[in-house]
Computed example of a mutant assay.
Amino acid sequence: MDKSVIKFNHCDKDIYCFFVPDQCPECGVSFSGKRLEEAPVSIPNPVSNGHQAPCAFLVASTEDSALRDFDGCSDLHTGISNTNGIVYNYTKTGVQREHQGWEHCICIPLVQPDMFSLMSQWDQYLEKFSSAQMWDPSWQSFNEESHNCYSYSLMFINRVLATQSKPALSKEEFTRSFVLPRIKRASKYMMLCREISQNHFYIVDSPRRNSGEGPSEEDEDSKSN
Rank of each mutant, 00 (worst) to 15 (best):
R185T: 07
M155G: 13
L76V: 04
H99N: 03
K166R: 13
K128S: 07
R35L: 12
S32L: 14
V5R: 11
M134E: 09
S153R: 05
A60Y: 06
V59G: 05
A186K: 00
D136W: 10
N148A: 02
V87T: 01
A186S: 06
E63P: 04
F18Q: 09
G33A: 06
Y90N: 00
V47D: 02
E144T: 13
R209D: 01
E38G: 14
Q124K: 15
C107D: 03
A39K: 12
S177F: 12
S151Y: 02
P113Y: 01
E217W: 11
K13V: 00
Y90D: 01
V87H: 01
R159S: 13
S130R: 03
A53G: 08
N199K: 14
I80Y: 05
D71V: 10
Y150G: 04
S197E: 11
S187V: 10
E220N: 15
L76M: 11
V20Y: 00
Q100D: 06
P54I: 01
K223H: 07
E145V: 05
D221T: 08
K171M: 06
N210G: 00
V179L: 11
P21D: 00
I183E: 05
I108F: 13
H147A: 01
D64R: 14
E98L: 09
F129L: 09
T78R: 12
P25Q: 07
A53N: 12
Y152I: 03
V5I: 14
A132E: 12
M155R: 15
I196E: 01
E38T: 14
N210F: 07
P25I: 08
G214T: 15
S30V: 07
E37V: 13
Y16Q: 04
N143H: 12
G85L: 06
S222H: 10
V29W: 10
L192E: 06
S151Q: 05
P25A: 11
S120R: 04
P167V: 10
I157V: 15
M190Q: 15
M115C: 08
K223S: 11
K184A: 13
C27W: 14
A162N: 14
S141Y: 05
E172W: 06
R97V: 04
E217H: 11
V47Q: 03
T93Q: 06
Q23H: 13
D22N: 08
C55F: 08
H51Y: 02
P113I: 01
P54E: 02
R97A: 10
A60F: 04
D12M: 07
H147W: 01
L36R: 08
V204I: 07
K188L: 03
E38I: 14
S165D: 11
C17S: 05
M115I: 00
S197K: 12
T93H: 02
H104V: 08
G214N: 15
F19R: 15
F178N: 02
